[in-house]
Amino acid sequence: MSIEQAERRRASALVAPALLWTLAFFVLPFAGMVWLSLGHLEGREVVAGPGPENYVRIFTDPSFLKGIRVSLEITLVVTVISVVLAWPLAWIIAMRVPQRWQRLALMLAVLPFWTSYVVRSYSWALVLGANGVVMQALIGAGIIDEPVQIMATRTATVIGFVHFFVMLLTLTIYSNLVQLSPNYARAAADLGASGWQVIRLVILPLTLPGVMTGAFLTFVLCIGDYITPQILGGNNELTLPQLIMLQLGRRGDFPMASALSVVLMALVTLAYAASARWLKMDRV
């Protein structure tokens, strides 16, 4: 056996556990879910397909179409706002905070991850409510006379999401920023670039892998999240995960829930395809 063959076998042996794991716990269940999505409920029994009924309904029923649209709108808004807020924060931590304080700054940045996701959402419900801190502060400051409804709106959902995802993006962008050699900025400054030009033309493009990786993770986690829109959105419009739960709760319409999950998966795949050229995980 040549050295190359032996190396290949060794590599295969090393990769095999991960491949088997993925096959057993992702590929096979996913294939099962796709197959289930082609079935339908007859009475209360799940009947095997294959048939396109569920997908036809998803793309023709206005309520389901709205679910897809609402999910995409919320996810895109959250992703953009989170990137806009996280980049300067990461830059300040990486470039302006003295190195000995950076660890503390990062720890403060990830503090929201330490609390339960559900508890955090309910906390936002109390903060954003008509009698919550925000409204009472605005009324106390004389800015508004009556509470403005934020709780149980899309705005509340977006705020809850952004609070969480800014932290995630800050980490991915920060880890990208600290890998950059300071010589890039120095060279640009030597060639006459202003501070703003250095950031805009040199630093920002070089952090694109970190931004895109964080943005993609934000997209995936946000579009698949059930808790935040359920607690903060007040069910005034349903996202895809909420529609999926609705199929399961009482009637147990597993085929329709599976079809909606496949659509959700397809949206994530499209997002990956759109951002794949920038996703350089090794740079993050």
Binding site: Y122, A125, L126, G129, A130, N131, G132, Q149, M151, A152, Q230, I231, G234, N235, N236
Partner: peptide, 18 residues
């Protein structure tokens, strides 16, 4: 209506004056 909510969210909304 302001919201359509499950048990806990309904209790919270009523208890907090939402």
């Amino acid at each position: 209506s302001r919201q359509v909510s499950d048990v806990v969210a309904s209790q919270t909304a009523l208890a907090t004056g939402e």
